[in-house]
Amino acid sequence: MKANRLVAPIVLALGLSILPAAAQDYPTKPVRIVVTFPPGGSSDVTARALSVPLQKALGQPVVVDNKPGAGGTIAATEIFRAAPDGYNLMMSNTTPISLAPFMLNPQPYDSIKGFTHVSLVATVPDVVMVHPSVPAKSLAELIDWVKAQNKKVFYGSGGVGSIGHILGETFKKQTGLNIEHVGYRGSAPMITDLIAGRLSFSFDTLPQNVPHIKAGKLRPLAVTSRARSHVAPDIQTVVEAGMPYLVAENFIGVSAPANLPEPVLSRLHAAIQKSLDDPDLVARLRDLGLTVQKMSQPEFTAFVSKQVEGWAEPVKASGAKLN
């Protein structure tokens, strides 16, 4: 009996010493960042830009893995269920954290308690754009044009449950316009259809659309931020257009499964903060219309909580659902 009584404390002590050691040694293998949308969108661009300096900071390969679908909840659910060891991360953003969960019943995860929100990376506004065949040069003119059509007008977004979708439905509710949403599997195919004239207008994040705007393939009407974008200062804001209810900026950050060990969390947060000081990363994201922002880990968690609380009512009011 005495021998048995001694074994348990020894095993327990060994277990307790092994776990912190593994966490302290993090990372010892490649780290994966899951992106909730297809290649080409803001989250994907940010993840790939971040992976370069982050790989140097961590001393291990950083692999970007696109897993789109269901408003980003497929990827988010995978990370929610993953082991909290720091090797499976998510490029978290407004859609799968603040929007999509409110469009599903039951909700697949708790956006706050279900994750460790590690670090904010950047914020980016949406932009309202029209095909050049639409004569509108402002949101007010777009409203007048839609009303004059006497038929349903179609607008697009990067996906059902995206921030563009919610903004579109909010716009519809506030104006009473006869418009219908067309959701795509990512921004790239939606932009293709918009340029081809198969859609009249869209709500989409700014970065991937800047080249098309500069080339004259799409006409921007307003950005959904309170201040004008540094990458497109000639585009007025929705506030200037008299529609402050359309103010919305997508956040892009890094999140992990809940209960991430403190040594791993500290190492990961420090590595991301160091990466955000990389001038090449800052310049690349700035050129694409994103604004790099740094926060402490508790500040980012509080920021996400505020985002979730702030979007709950608009999402429910929009009536948007994920099937």
Rank of each mutant, 00 (worst) to 15 (best):
K2I: 14
K2P: 05
L6T: 09
V7C: 02
P9E: 08
G15I: 11
P20M: 02
Y26R: 08
Y26K: 01
T28Q: 15
K29I: 10
V34N: 07
V34Y: 13
S43F: 00
T46M: 09
A49P: 07
S51D: 03
P53H: 05
L58M: 07
G59K: 05
P61M: 04
V64S: 02
D65F: 07
G69A: 07
G69W: 14
G71N: 03
T73F: 03
A76I: 14
T77M: 12
T77S: 15
P84E: 00
D85L: 05
N88G: 05
L89T: 04
T95V: 10
P96T: 04
P101Y: 07
P101H: 02
P101S: 00
P101K: 02
P101E: 02
M103N: 07
Q107N: 06
Q107E: 11
D110C: 09
S111G: 11
S111Q: 04
G114A: 11
V118E: 01
V118A: 01
V121S: 06
V121Q: 03
P132V: 12
P132R: 08
V134H: 04
P135I: 04
E141G: 08
L142A: 05
W145P: 15
W145S: 10
K147P: 13
V153I: 12
Y155Q: 03
Y155H: 13
Y155W: 13
H165C: 01
Q174F: 03
N178W: 02
H181D: 11
H181N: 07
R185S: 12
G186T: 03
A188V: 15
P189S: 04
P189D: 08
I191L: 13
I191F: 04
T192E: 15
D193S: 10
S200H: 14
T205W: 00
P207M: 00
V210M: 07
V210T: 01
H212R: 13
K214I: 10
K214Q: 13
G216I: 12
R226I: 11
P233H: 12
I235L: 10
I235C: 08
Q236C: 03
G242V: 10
I252G: 05
G253T: 06
G253M: 04
E262M: 11
E262I: 09
P263G: 09
L268K: 07
H269G: 14
I272W: 00
P279G: 10
R284V: 09
D287L: 12
L288S: 12
Q293C: 08
Q297H: 14
P298I: 05
E313A: 15
K321C: 05
